[in-house]
Each structure stands twice: as structure tokens, then as C-alpha cells.
Design a protein around this nucleic acid. Structure first.
Length: 834
RNA sequence: GGGCGUAUGGCUCAGUUGGUUAGAGCGCAGCCUUCACACGGCUGAGGUCACAGGUUCGAGUCCUGUUACGCCCACCA
């Protein structure tokens, strides 16, 4: 075997060189050979391209790559595409800031638009087509930067299969998926009170909510003779009833009677409902349409009217709802934000003596849109929903059929499904998203007929109903009586992201491919999006593919934590940019750090681990160089010391393989690294001289060293793809990443690992003696006496010659004993020659 | 309020079905310029395995409870 080893091997430049070669050679290209069972398919998370990648991305995407590389080496055809999630609100927000614009759908397209840029004092209104074009431009730029980083990180993605969630294929699949739901009765629209973000002016779904502890205050307010407590006195005009618990003796006599609201004098009934809690507030609550989700329940179950007072912008409407007098009290509020209205109404309540005492400050959880800044309101609007509530039990069972890594993560899923309280709201009143592929007839009265949507041909998808015209109509009939009108909404970004298995597998576009990769083998993702992405993907496959799971396994990554144990935020993550780390330590080293984080476990950001990784990569270079520089001597592994090493390696291979099969990448790295280090420190030192000596013993050593090097490189290849490929190229054909994963069988030889274990212990004892005597490790040793059990002494004798050479030991003796101990007698220092 | 997870030397973490003196790396101390490696190597010091009970011949490992931290979920007037 001829080797072409550089004199001074180095890590510098490996990333550029090898990522280019891999691309050229199609090393990670998916080939359509073999049945489904020979394919390993990965439903990779499409990262949101709204800003920069942070170290958390590097961390979790590396985990996926480790498994993909392992499976590829085991002989699987790995289908490992990546997508960019570029549709939706994050992109819109970024475009607004980056270009200094905002979308105004009433404007017309301006072909000569020049956006003012981020420095603009005020955002310039632009048409929807202009806005969408800017979204495309910016995301394209971001996507290139992401790809560069991921290539440098060494992700073995097949870059020819990249997709974007706003791309035509994704839109087509997303729209087709929606139409299927519609046909099968799983999607419906309804006018209903929904949670609403007043800044983004869109409905939001249950999965996008988060509670935030917020300062508020209880206001005690008199409704005739009844006192209620509320944190939202501004909603008094929207009050439709008071409610108390049916068993509450204090209010039982009042059930069925009415009271008048303060300031507005509207007559409202006093009602009973078991959800009312006697020990909360004054025990009786005002029901407003709508202050919170409990109001919605009461309103629905008690059959109450609607009195909406806030518009979609979160401000008080110009005219009061039915039943509320349009007097001076109302006009004092009209146009105010909720916060302003509260202040004004409290002032008037005080003046009128209807307010009891001072507001009592509290901190309480309030619902926010996870991306929003102001509390959510509840407004009534027409929205599209996907059925999930009636399938709750089945969906829970789906999650339980999935193999979770780590297993306890299933609890998150079950928790979420158990807590579902509404169907999945998929419509958003936004611009950069996949439009609902629907139009509605417009009656002669000019009103849309929402109950009779016009559906496009499936072949025409994707469509944009705001520019495309339904079959049988002309564009002149748009928004005219007797004509048609487009559904104005776009789909929630999760409505598209939930179809990544279908998009990545090109469902409805390439049946052959889809049947080869679906259901996917694994969905890697973070635990924070189990309730959104994972759940919604399970829902879509359940509806779309007759109860199928989208994948068999879910591999859940942890988070990156700051050194102070807090979740590393994006802003902090950006301080330490991934590219900087890759440049400073090398990609292999950063991957080493990522791989040391246990599956599903939050991991500290730790540059020390990267230093370690770099050290390991350098060690691989140097040890390999040493092995390959040794004089070649033909032979087979036969010496007991060599067979011992191979036996240990075989054990290691079995261990690593089993762990990887269970999606545990951290253990194989840890074990391989430890064994590699002892290989360098002990085995190499022991056999060095024998290998140089040639002959039968030399041939055995060389054969063993080559087998060991080949095995180590392949075991480390998923973790350190660059340095292992570099070394592999010195003496092997092809890519190490296409080489077969090592097996215990190829290392079999019936060796006894104890030979190396005992020899290593003795060697360490000799080193210690020299170290304590403050001598060089080359110092000569007169005698070594090893005390140990007969079995271990027998093992030791097999390594005696190597041991004496490695330790410069003149005489090695053994004595039987209960426990291991070593006496070392150093030779007197040589008399300096005159 | 319900649930999940974590707690091992100064730091970051291993510890596979309970089995003899609890491991690694970093950091620290000392030594060695040894012909693969000074972007080195060797040697060493350092731990009542959060706490309290229990099961067992034997518990870091199993059971019960407590505490701390993190996270998820919940109709939060």
C-alpha cells in the first residue's frame, strides 16, 4: 500500500478543499437504487431565514448530520434534503426593517420602486406585489449565506434537493394539501371569536400563544348592588352578563335578574355557570365579548349576544355595538387603545362613585402572540380551521406510536394534545405566505358567498387567487356583483411547514421518489417546537395518508445554554457567530463540541470542548502520519499484543454501532476518542520498535496498525469529516464517507484484550517512576517486578518484549500476588564521558 | 394547579441491565525539548455521587419523600 503523506500535515484549508471535492464528486448525492428498506430519509428542519444562524443551529444540525453519515456508511442511500423556511411573519418583519417599507394591499405595483432602506425614519407603504418581491430578494440572499455556512460545517446534505417553503412546489403541495382537507371535510371556515394580534393584525393559533407574567390590577366596580372585580374595566361597554357559580349562595337569589352596567346603563342578566369560581375576585365576574378565552366559553355556552367594542387595530370602534347608547360616555372612548380606554373609564368610574377603593396591583399571566409585543385581544372574524379536536384520541395514539429519542419527550406531545381546546386555525391576515387557493361567488347584492367557494383545478396549482381568475370567469368580474372575489388570506406558516415530508419527498410531483422516502425515517428537531411543527406534521400525514405517521423516529435535540445556564438567546448567539467559531477552531472541532451534547439534553456553550476537538483532529493527523511513515513489512496480525488491540477495537465497534442505531451519537464519539487516545499513548509506544524492526513481528504490527487506522478513521468520520477524509486520501481510494462502516467481523482474531490492559498498566507504572525521579522518559530501567494474579501475569508475558523496548527496561520479572503492584528499579545515571 | 427533566471533584460532562479502591477532558501542580505530535507528551493532587429514609449481602445506579434549578402544559374574571 503506497501512502502519500505530507511532511507537515495541517488542518488549515481542509474545509474549503473537501467541501468542494464532495460537491464535485457527488459524494452525498441520493441515488434511486434499491428498495425503501435500503433508504434512510431525513425530514430536516427548514431553518427560518430571517436573520443569521446562531450556534444553536450548528449544534442541532450537526446531530442530524452525524446520524446521516453513519447510515450512509452502513450502506443506506441517504435522502437528506434541506429546506429554507422563508414564508411568513418573520420574513415580513425583517423585510420591513431591512428595506424600510410596509405592505399596503390597496396600492398598485410600482415597477420602479426603490426602497428607502433600514435608515428610513418612516416605513414607506408599498403594494403587495412589491412587498412580496422584496421578501423574495432578501430571503434569497439569506439562503445563500446559510448554505455557505452549512457547507463549511460539513453537513452531508444533498444540495441538489433543496427547497423553500415559499417556492412554487411547496406552494403547490401546500395548496393541494389544503384542498384535500377541504374535500374530505377536515377543513372548514367559520366566523368565530379568535385570538388576535392587534399589531400584526392577524389571527393567531393556540400553538403560537405564550403566557407572560404581566402587571395588572383588580378594579372593584359596582353594577347596581353587585360588586365585581376585573382587570379590564375598559371592557364594561362590551359586558353582556354577570356570572357566578350555581352553588354560590351569595348570588343564587340574583340568578335570572338583571343589573345595569355602570356609565352605560345597559341592562345585563345575572347568570350561573360552573366555571365561575366563588373564591376568585368577588366571586362574580363580568362577561365581556371578549376579554379572555373564558368569556368565549361563557358566551357560547350561555347563548349570549356579541357586543364588540375593539376593532382589528385594537382601538375602540367609532360607533358602539348594538344595545350600547352612542352617548358622551362612548365618544370619550372611541378611537382609544385598550390602555387609554382603561385610564379614561377608571377616571369616570371614580367620579361616579362606581369604583370601590383603589385598584389592587397584581401580576398575572396574560396571553401574547409569541412574536408579539401587546396582549392578544379576541375579535370575531372569518377564519379557516383544520379539524383536530374530534381526532384527539387518534392523534395522541399517533404520537405514542412514534419512537422518541429520548423517550421521555413523548410526554410533551401528550401534554399538548390533552390540552388542545380549539381546532387548528390556519388562516392569517398577512401577505408573504401561501394564499388559500379559493375564490367566492359574489352575489348580486355585492356580498361574497362564503359557503360556496370556487375551487381551482388541481393541475393549475399553485395559484394566487388575487391575480389568477377562476375557471369560467373573466378578470373584469373580480369583486363585482355577480362576479367573484379572492379569499384574502394566506396560510399560517405551520400549514406549509407541516408538509415538509411531502415537500421534501415531492408528493404529487414525483411518485417514485415519494414511495422511496415516505414515511421518513427520522424527524430531527428541538423540543420547543413539538407542539407546533411536530404535532402539525403528524396531523397532516394522518389526514392526508390515511392515518400514516410521517416518520418512524423523532430525534429531539436540546438547547444551547449560556455558561450561566440560561437558554442562549438569539442576540447572545449572534455575539458568538458560528462562522467565527468555525474559522477559529475548525469545523471538525465545532462538530466535536456539538457531538458531545447528549441527545435531548441542553448543553452548555463551551469553547473548551472545541479546543479539545481541535486537539483530537491534530492528533489524528499526526498519529496517522506516523503509522503511514513506518517501513512497510508484509504480514498478518498474529502477535498477542496486536490481537489484543484488534479485540478491543472490535468491542468498540459493536458498542458504537449499537449506540448509533439508537440515535445516540455522543457515546460513540466518547468511546472512540478514549480508545484512540490509549492507542496513541500505549499501543503505539509498545509496538514502535517492533514495527521498525521488520520481520514477522514487524509485519504483524504494520498489518495491525493499518487495520486500526482504517477503523479509527471510519469511526471518527461522522464526527470529524474533514480530517478523516484528508487522512483517508493519503492512502485509500474514494471517500471515507462512502467507505463501509467498520464491523467487529473484519477485526476478528481471538485476541485477549487483557494483554494490552496489563501492559498498559505496567507501562504507566514505569513512566510514573521516571516522572517521580524527574527523569526523561528515555531513562534506562534496571529491573521491573510485576506482582499480579497468574492469569494477568500470563497475559503480561505475551507483551514482555514490547514492554521492555518501550520502557527501556533491562530486566522484567513477575511474581504471583493477590493484587497488582509494580516495583521499578531505575538504572544509575550514565557516567558522563570525559 | 398538572407533567417532564436535571442535581457526580473549581468548570463541562461520562457512569449501559445495582457488584470489588467512582471515570474523562478542561483548569491546577510537577516533570520531560522522547527520532508522529510544543496547536505536544508524561505524572499527580482534587469527589460524604443535592438531602432524608427504605429495599438489598451490596446503591451514584432501584423505591418513597424533600430541596434547588430548568422546561412543557393548564379557562389566569
Amino acid at each position: 500500500m503506497s501512502a502519500n503523506v505530507p511532511e507537515k500535515p495541517s488542518l488549515d484549508g481542509l474545509e474549503e478543499r473537501w467541501s468542494a471535492r464532495w460537491e464535485e464528486a457527488g459524494t452525498y448525492r441520493f441515488e434511486r437504487v434499491g428498495p425503501r428498506s435500503e433508504v434512510f430519509s431525513v425530514d430536516t428542519p427548514p431553518p427560518t431565514v430571517s436573520g443569521s444562524l446562531h450556534v444553536g443551529h450548528v449544534f442541532s444540525y450537526t446531530h442530524t448530520d452525524l446520524v446521516a453519515r453513519f447510515q450512509r456508511m452502513r450502506g443506506k442511500q441517504v435522502y437528506y434534503p434541506i429546506g429554507w423556511d422563508d414564508n411568513g411573519l418573520p420574513t415580513e418583519r425583517r423585510v420591513q426593517n431591512y428595506y424600510g417599507v410596509r405592505c399596503d394591499p390597496s396600492l398598485h405595483y410600482d415597477p420602479d420602486l426603490v426602497p428607502p432602506g433600514s435608515a428610513a425614519k418612516q416605513q414607506v407603504p408599498v403594494s403587495r406585489p412589491n412587498f412580496v418581491a422584496l421578501c423574495h430578494a432578501l430571503t434569497a440572499e439569506d439562503e445563500q449565506a446559510f448554505e455557505r455556512l452549512f457547507r463549511r460545517l460539513g453537513l452531508s446534505v444533498d444540495w441538489s434537493t433543496t427547497y423553500t417553503t415559499i417556492g412554487a412546489d411547496a406552494q403547490r403541495i401546500s395548496q393541494l394539501g389544503f384542498l384535500r382537507l377541504l374535500e374530505e371535510g377536515h377543513a372548514y371556515q367559520r366566523v368565530a371569536p379568535t385570538l388576535w394580534d392587534v399589531d400584526f393584525q392577524t389571527a393567531v393559533a393556540q400553538a403560537e400563544l405564550e403566557d407572560r407574567e404581566t402587571d395588572g390590577a383588580y378594579h372593584r366596580i359596582r353594577f347596581d348592588d353587585i360588586e365585581i372585580e376585573t382587570t379590564r374595566p375598559e371592557l364594561i361597554p362590551a359586558c353582556v352578563a354577570l356570572v357566578a357559580h350555581p352553588d354560590d349562595a351569595r348570588f343564587r337569589p340574583r340568578f335570572g335578574t338583571t343589573v345595569r352596567t355602570p356609565l352605560f346603563g345597559v341592562e345585563v342578566p345575572v347568570l350561573a355557570h360552573p366555571l365561575a369560581e366563588p373564591d376568585k375576585g368577588s366571586g362574580i365576574a363580568m362577561i365581556c365579548t371578549f376579554g379572555d378565552v373564558t368569556d368565549v366559553v361563557w358566551w357560547r355556552e350561555l347563548g349570549l349576544p356579541v357586543r364588540s367594542m375593539l376593532g382589528r387595530d385594537g382601538r375602540v370602534l367609532a360607533t358602539p355595538p348594538d344595545g350600547v347608547p352612542d352617548g358622551e360616555a362612548w365618544q370619550a372612548l372611541a378611537g382609544a387603545t385598550a390602555k387609554q380606554a382603561r385610564a379614561r373609564i377608571v377616571e369616570r368610574l371614580r367620579e361616579g362613585g362606581e369604583m370601590i377603593g383603589e385598584p389592587r396591583p397584581i401580576r398575572h399571566p396574560v396571553k401574547f402572540f409569541e412574536k408579539g409585543d401587546r396582549p392578544l385581544e379576541i375579535v370575531t372574524s372569518r377564519q379557516w380551521f383544520i379539524n383536530v379536536l374530534e381526532h384527539k384520541d387518534d392523534l395522541k395514539a399517533q404520537g405514542q406510536r412514534l419512537r422518541w429519542h429520548p423517550p421521555f419527550m413523548v410526554a410533551r406531545y401528550e401534554n399538548w394534545v390533552d390540552g388542545l381546546n380549539s381546532d387548528w386555525l390556519v388562516s392569517r391576515q398577512r401577505f408573504f405566505g401561501v394564499p388559500f387557493p379559493l375564490w367566492y361567488q359574489v352575489g348580486d347584492d355585492g356580498e361574497p358567498r362564503f359557503d360556496s367557494p370556487i375551487v381551482p383545478d388541481h393541475d393549475s396549482l399553485p395559484i394566487d387567487p388575487s391575480t389568477d381568475v377562476p375557471p369560467g370567469y373573466t378578470d373584469e368580474q373580480r369583486d363585482r356583483p355577480g362576479g367573484f372575489t379572492a379569499d384574502p388570506d394566506v396560510m399560517d406558516t405551520w400549514a406549509t411547514s407541516s408538509l415538509t415530508p411531502q415537500i421534501a419527498g415531492r408528493w404529487s410531483l414525483d411518485d417514485e421518489l415519494f414511495s422511496m422516502v415516505f414515511p421518513f425515517d427520522v424527524r430531527p428537531q428541538g423540543h420547543d417546537i413539538i407542539r407546533t411543527w411536530l404535532f402539525s406534521t403528524v396531523v397532516r400525514s394522518y389526514h392526508l395518508h390515511r392515518g400514516a405517521l410521517p416518520w418512524t423516529d423523532a430525534a429531539i435535540s436540546g438547547w444551547i445554554l449560556d455558561p450561566d445556564r440560561k437558554k442562549m438567546s438569539k442576540s447572545k448567539g449572534n455575539v458568538v457567530t458560528p462562522i467565527k467559531l468555525l474559522e477559529q477552531y475548525g469545523s471538525d472541532a465545532v462538530r466535536y463540541w456539538a457531538a458531545s451534547g447528549r441527545p435531548g439534553t441542553d448543553t452548555a456553550f463551551d469553547e473548551n470542548q472545541m479546543r479539545n476537538g481541535r486537539r483530537l483532529a491534530i492528533k489524528v493527523l499526526n498519529a496517522s502520519k506516523f503509522v503511514l511513515f513506518l517501513p512497510r513489512t508484509e504480514g498478518d496480525a498474529s502477535h498477542p499484543v496486536d490481537l489484543a488491540l484488534l479485540a478491543g477495537l472490535a468491542r468498540l465497534v459493536d458498542d458504537a454501532t449499537a449506540a448509533f442505531d439508537g440515535y445516540d451519537y455522543a457515546r460513540p464519539l466518547e468511546r472512540t476518542e478514549a480508545f484512540f487516545w490509549s492507542f496513541c499513548d500505549d499501543y503505539l509506544e509498545l509496538v514502535k520498535n517492533r514495527a521498525y524492526g521488520g520481520g514477522e513481528g514487524g509485519g504483524s504490527a504494520i498489518a495491525t496498525l493499518e487495520a486500526a487506522l482504517s477503523t479509527f478513521l471510519r469511526l471518527l468520520a461522522p464526527f470529524l469529516p474533514f480530517v478523516t477524509e484528508e487522512v483517508w486520501s493519503w492512502w485509500q481510494e474514494g471517500s471515507v464517507h462512502r467507505a463501509p462502516w467498520p464491523t467487529a467481523a473484519e477485526l476478528a482474531g481471538g485476541g485477549d484484550p487483557a494483554v494490552l490492559e496489563v501492559a498498559g498498566e505496567v507501562l504507566r507504572a514505569v513512566r510514573k517512576a521516571k516522572s517521580e525521579a524527574k527523569l526523561s522518559q528515555r531513562a534506562a530501567v534496571d529491573t521491573v517486578v510485576v506482582h499480579d494474579t497468574p492469569a494477568r501475569l500470563a497475559a503480561l508475558r505475551a507483551a514482555e518484549a514490547d514492554l521492555r523496548e518501550a520502557g527501556s527496561v533491562a530486566d522484567l520479572r513477575t511474581e504471583e500476588a493477590e493484587a497488582f503492584s509494580v516495583d521499578v528499579t531505575l538504572a544509575p545515571p550514565p557516567v558522563p564521558s570525559t
